[in-house]
Design a protein around this nucleic acid. Structure first.
Lengths: 138, 138
DNA sequence: ATTTATACTTACCAAAAAGAGAGCATGGGC
DNA sequence: GCCCATGCTCTCTTTTTGGTAAGTATAAAT
């Protein structure tokens, strides 16, 4: 019996399907990514964006990464990609319901970050100081 | 005037401090990471863990990544690290209030993933099919 | 004296990620 | 006839990441 199974038995926590667990973890891994999160935020705010607009709004992203991230999001059903057959090309991206749901779910994390960034900065300088003190004395 | 500034003016959205924006984005990038999210989940469930326990609970993580991730979390003030001066060594990790807050914020994302993984799987197979069809016909 | 246990740290190496920059397609404006 | 705009794709190179394996410290058990 694994650690976890024993713990679950002792604490009376229902067992989980490991296949589902792995899938959920894989999705979290896929989706918990800086650019994905940023794009979702931008698309939530603006509703509908062309490639170039996203490129400008998502500061620091390379064309390659943008394409890649958008493709992955499309594949996972988070955005729709609409191609207008005009020249020069026009392509629009928009969140799906699924993507909007993730946006809402992730909203809490943005709020947390906005509310707590000062504490994190503080923690970082405290940590640096502690390390410096250790280096000097310990 | 940037795209964004113009948009904000037109839509009457208050301007944001770009320094804060960047910091918040950096924090999101730091924290929206598979292992960080997993460790936070494990620590939320168990309250307090030794290194070895985390190592076993966090399936697939290497010692190096575990150490690295825990250090980063400690630096950011998400966990405390308590060293007991015994042999063999004993070190305990526990979420701080800050970490617990993030845990709560992430909770929404876990729930979203659990509720929607089937739709994502579906979207993926739809996408694959569409691509295959395009490859054959387009 | 040797083994064991724990929580690392370090060095090395392979693999993956990501940036830079060129190329492509094409209708309209000059 | 040529250039521009857009949204890519492709290649090449660099950077980053992450795994593996070995080393460290030390008291207690054998």
């Amino acid at each position: 019996m694994t650690d976890d199974a024993l713990r679950r038995e002792l604490l009376d926590i229902p067992p989980t399907d490991p296949a589902v667990d792995r899938l959920v973890e894989e999705i979290i891994g896929r989706v918990a990514d800086k650019w994905t999160m940023l794009l979702i935020e931008i698309l939530t705010e603006r509703g509908c964006c062309r490639f170039g607009e996203l490129s400008r709004a998502c500061e620091g992203i390379s064309q390659k990464m943008l394409t890649q991230t958008l493709r992955a999001m499309e594949r996972d059903g988070l955005v729709t990609r609409t191609v207008y057959p005009v020249v020069p090309p026009k392509v629009e991206y928009r969140l799906t319901d699924l993507g909007l749901g993730l946006s809402k779910a992730f909203c809490g994390v943005w709020i947390w970050a906005e509310e707590n960034f000062r504490r994190i900065e503080q923690a970082r300088s405290d940590y640096a100081e502690r390390k410096a003190a250790e280096g000097g004395a310990g």
